[in-house]
């Protein structure tokens, strides 16, 4: 544990990257997953087929393979997929191609699960709600955005919370793909302080548990606040 206490700045910086990876990927996968869910339940057959194929492909692929694709494959096909154009520095944090590739992998992966969570929510909204919305003349986008999705999101909060908790922990894969996140820091610490392995494991496990607890707490607040009266 001393190893962590003596290097608490590195510990916090590691979790800083973890949090950034999580927040950015969560936001992107929420948007992407929602669009996918809308495509899956929508009236356009081509989009329905595309969205189901996307979900089937991405959900059945291990996350590490998606990471490998972005780190070692995608850039060979399309140069912009090397993400060399990303170069942002905020305080002690550097967001470059490695961070971006990790966000791309995490977002694409999680969006498939977000899509399925929201689709489950959409299915829980009675058909009559959508019919009533169509009956007052709302177009498909309005039916979704005004009536179906707001209700679907409420029903989706518990499965979405699970998806995001998984995402939070999945960020650790980025540790072996060029991002010095908490998991990478933990490996560094255990390498340097082989005698304190257990203390280091516990310190980092507690860090992840703390972050997961925050996500769970937010989820339960939303669930309570959005409960249909």
């Amino acid at each position: 544990m001393d190893a962590v206490l003596d290097n608490v700045d590195l510990y916090l910086k590691g979790f800083g990257y973890t949090i950034f990876l999580f927040l950015v990927s969560a936001a992107i996968s929420l948007v992407l997953g929602t669009l996918l869910a809308a495509a899956r339940v929508g009236p356009v057959a081509v989009l329905r087929t595309f969205a189901s194929a996307y979900v089937a492909l991405v959900r059945n692929t291990p996350l590490v393979i998606i990471f490998l694709f972005f780190q070692l494959g995608a850039g060979k096909i399309f140069d912009w997929l090397r993400f060399g154009w990303v170069d942002i520095h905020i305080g002690p944090f550097d967001f470059t191609s490695f961070f971006t590739a990790a966000v791309a992998a995490l977002s694409l992966y999680s969006s498939a699960f977000v899509c399925e969570s929201i689709r489950a929510g959409v299915n829980s909204v009675g058909l009559g709600q959508a019919e009533a919305a169509r009956a007052i003349g709302l177009p498909f986008s309005g039916v979704m955005s005004q009536v179906v999705l707001p209700q679907a999101f409420r029903a989706s909060v518990p499965p979405l919370a699970s998806t995001f908790i998984a995402l939070l922990k999945n960020t650790s894969v980025a540790g072996v793909f060029g991002v010095l996140d908490a998991a990478a820091r933990m490996k560094g610490f255990t390498n340097d302080h082989a005698d304190q392995r257990w203390g280091i494991f516990i310190a980092f496990a507690l860090g992840y548990m703390f972050l997961v607890a925050i996500v769970s707490a937010i989820a339960s607040v939303l669930e309570r606040r959005w409960r249909v009266v």
Partner: peptide, 21 residues
Amino acid sequence: VTGSTSLDNAEAEGMKPVGFD
């Protein structure tokens, strides 16, 4: 390599370490 002494040394030398498996 993530978690290697080399990575720590690189950081100590003022470079920005990027770790892989």
